[in-house]
C-alpha cells in the first residue's frame, strides 16, 4: 500500500500537542487522514470497534504519547500487539518523557521509533518532516 493514503491515528491527550501535530502536518503538506484519540482506551475502542464502528481502513501508522489518562501508552501498545488484526501497525512513540525503562519497554513492544517532544516548534516540524519522508520510503501492509 502507498503510504500517502495510509490513515494515521494520533493518540494524544494534550489539545495543544494535537494542534501542534496538525499544524506541522499542514506545513509539510501531509494530507493523510488523521484520527485523534485522547486516551489509550479510546484509541483501542476506535481500532477494535467497541461501542462504535471500527476505523476502516485500519490506521497503519500510530503516533503514540505515553502519558495518557485511563490507559497508558504502554498498556495500549501491549493490547495492540496482542490483537492479530492490529499487531502489524507501525507505532511511533512521541512523548514528553524518556526514562530508560519506558524506552526499553517501548522497543520491547516493537515500536518503529521513540521520539522525545522537543520544546521548540521548529524542531518538531523537522521531526514530522523526517517521519514523512520515512513513511514515503517504506511499504505498509494493507
Amino acid at each position: 500500500m502507498k503510504t500517502k493514503q495510509a490513515h494515521i491515528l494520533l493518540v494524544e491527550d494534550d489539545p495543544q500537542d494535537v494542534a501542534s501535530t496538525k499544524r506541522a502536518f499542514l506545513s509539510q503538506g501531509i494530507d493523510n487522514p488523521v484520527h485523534v484519540a485522547p486516551s489509550g482506551k479510546v484509541a483501542l475502542d476506535m481500532l477494535q470497534g467497541r461501542g462504535r464502528p471500527a476505523l476502516d481502513p485500519i490506521p497503519r501508522i500510530i503516533l503514540l504519547d505515553l502519558d495518557l489518562p485511563e490507559m497508558s501508552g504502554l498498556d495500549f501498545l501491549t493490547a495492540l500487539r496482542k490483537d492479530p488484526l492490529l499487531k502489524a501497525c507501525s507505532v511511533f512513540v512521541i512523548t514528553g518523557q524518556s526514562t530508560p525503562k519506558d524506552l526499553l519497554q517501548a522497543y520491547d513492544l516493537n515500536v518503529a521509533g521513540y521520539i522525545v517532544k522537543p520544546i521548540q516548534y521548529t524542531s518538531f516540524v523537522d521531526i514530522i518532516a523526517t517521519l514523512n519522508s520515512f513513511w514515503n520510503l517504506i511499504e505498509l501492509p494493507n
Binding site: D14, Q16, D17, A19, S20, D67, G96, Q97, S98, T99, K117, P118, I119, Q120, Y121, T122, F124
Partner: peptide
C-alpha cells in the same frame, strides 16, 4: 518526573504558541 515532564509540557506549549 515532575521536572522533566510536567514542567516541560506548558513550556512547550508557550514556545509553540509564540512560534
Amino acid at each position: 518526573y515532575i521536572v522533566s515532564h510536567d514542567l516541560k509540557a506548558p513550556l512547550r506549549a508557550i514556545n509553540n504558541l509564540s512560534a
